[in-house]
Design a protein around this nucleic acid. Structure first.
Length: 471
DNA sequence: ACCGAATGATACC
DNA sequence: TGGTATCCCTTCGG
């Protein structure tokens, strides 16, 4: 996917003019377009980044700052999130290390990969990409060697990247198109690896799905979708079950033992918009979570693929220059995390709606809570809990955010909800609009107490990170 | 403070 | 079926 010369977006220019005109006439600033209070965050962070880099020497990434965060419904609570700013392009994919609890791998639109242990600054590993066109669509740690990553790139390659030796083994290469202004018209967009099948699946931007051995021999290549395959995934509990998601507005479920053509899927799950992702639930592999390109999150159950078990309305519309928003599962509970992109056309939209990280209960479809960090006001496209489920990593523009104590917050919140239900205290102060300070003094005292405990539990950790960031 | 670049999806010929 | 104009309307860096 090399850069292509495209006509100028005249409408864009017009829109700019229009906005400037409106800004002049109404006395409003352009950035108030969606009612966001757009703090010039990046500038501040940049300054801090430069300072941090001066102090830590020539390290390509660093902990920029320790930010205080808040959960909306818990105005009395604050905890910390870490932020890293390692790339010169957007974050496009994110994977937790399978065994190391504080290490994430993050890929960018320029092909850069960072392996970041946010607790030990010196353990950062940075692999420079090829720049424009080397956009990383997906990454997956090898189930055999955790120092190796399967990487699907916009340059048309699927490779096995050694993070220690930094060697790369190209496993598959999409055909060269031979055009003048770019080299590939076809590139891989997603990967998954099955340990039990010793197989790798990948999907490309034209609708092809390729099954390979882990060393790269092609087993088959079939056009299973009409358009880009945004996601491919093996089921963790059933080794022959495969899910594919596509911008052709479908998710398809396949029996790997019997794939012949695009029509012999086990199930089709039609959507109203292109689909960004479709993840099987890690708890039992029996549910499937899909995110479309506008306003739906769906939860399907394997007991009935004909209709979603829950259809959760949620604003996360597609935009060209935004990494597609993907909802993911918590590894241990049926919880769903997803970044919110407030949409004036979404029912219930309010002018001051924030770009939160929303957490839903996968069994009821109800929102459980929202995360927000006033120092990180961008749209958070990617969210993934670590395998232990106690930390959340997010991709926001060029940044990586790490939210700590997440699981404890959730656990405590569960207890809290239970306690509140038992006491007959309405727990619906946890509704989306509950951003107004909540009313029940009894509840808030309880919350404050619980939350205080959490701060105590992990206080040391937070302090450590802080001091590292400021070293 | 302002502007250009990057470049996904689709409608339409 | 392929080329291109239009729309969606963010974020960074100069």
């Amino acid at each position: 996917m090399a850069p292509v010369n495209r006509p100028k977006d005249k409408k864009h220019e017009k829109a700019h003019e229009r906005q400037s005109e409106e800004a002049k006439s109404s006395g409003k600033r352009k950035l108030d377009y969606e009612g966001q209070q757009n703090v010039p965050l990046t500038k501040k962070l940049l300054l801090r980044k430069n300072k941090a880099q001066e102090k830590i020497g020539n390290v390509s990434s660093g902990i920029v700052s320790t930010l205080s965060s808040e959960i909306f419904r818990d105005p009395y609570k604050s905890y910390h999130s870490l932020l890293s700013f390692p790339f010169d392009r957007r974050v496009t994919c994110l994977e937790w290390h399978p065994t190391h609890p504080s290490t994430v791998a993050v890929g960018s639109k320029g092909g850069d990969i960072i392996l970041w242990d946010y607790e030990v600054l010196t353990k950062t590993c940075f692999i420079k990409g090829k720049g424009p066109g080397d956009s990383l669509g997906g990454m997956k740690f090898s189930p055999y060697e955790s120092a190796k990553l399967y990487v699907a790139s916009g340059d048309g390659t699927l490779s096995l990247q050694d993070l220690e030796g930094k060697l790369v083994q190209v496993i598959s290469r999409a055909p060269d198109c031979g055009h003048e202004n770019h080299n590939v018209c076809c590139w891989y967009c997603s990967v998954d690896v099955s340990a039990s099948c010793r197989a790798v699946v990948t999907g490309d931007n034209l609708g092809n799905v390729v099954l390979l051995s882990t060393s790269g021999e092609e087993i088959w290549k079939l056009k299973l979708h009409k358009k880009k395959v945004t996601h491919v995934e093996f089921n963790s509990r059933c080794e022959w079950l495969l899910a594919t998601a596509s911008v052709d507005q479908t998710v398809k479920i396949w029996d790997l033992r019997n794939i012949k053509n695009k029509a012999n899927f086990l199930h089709v799950l039609p959507h109203d918009k292109p689909v960004n992702a479709a993840y099987f639930s890690p708890t039992d592999g029996a549910k499937l979570l899909s995110t479309d390109q506008r306003n739906e999150i769906r939860v399907y159950s394997c007991s009935d693929w004909t209709k979603p078990q829950h259809l959760i309305p949620h604003p996360h519309r597609h935009f060209q220059h935004l990494t597609p928003i993907k909802a993911t599962w918590h590894p241990r509970y049926d919880l769903i995390v997803v970044g919110r992109y407030p949409d004036p056309n979404f029912p219930g939209y309010t002018a001051h709606e924030l770009r939160t990280v929303d957490i839903f209960d996968g069994n009821t479809g109800e929102m459980v809570c929202q995360l927000y960090d006033s120092n990180a006001s961008g749209i958070i496209s990617l969210n993934k809990f670590n395998p232990m489920g106690d930390t959340l990593a997010s991709g926001m523009g060029y940044n990586i955010l790490i939210w700590s104590r997440e699981e404890m917050v959730m656990k405590k919140q569960e207890h809290l909800l239970k306690a509140m239900t038992e006491q007959g205290i309405g727990s619906r102060s946890l509704s989306r609009r509950g951003r107004q300070r909540q009313a029940n003094p009894g509840t808030s005292k309880l919350k404050a107490k619980l939350l205080f405990c959490e701060v105590e539990e992990t206080g040391t950790k937070a302090k450590d990170s802080k001091s590292q960031g400021r070293k």
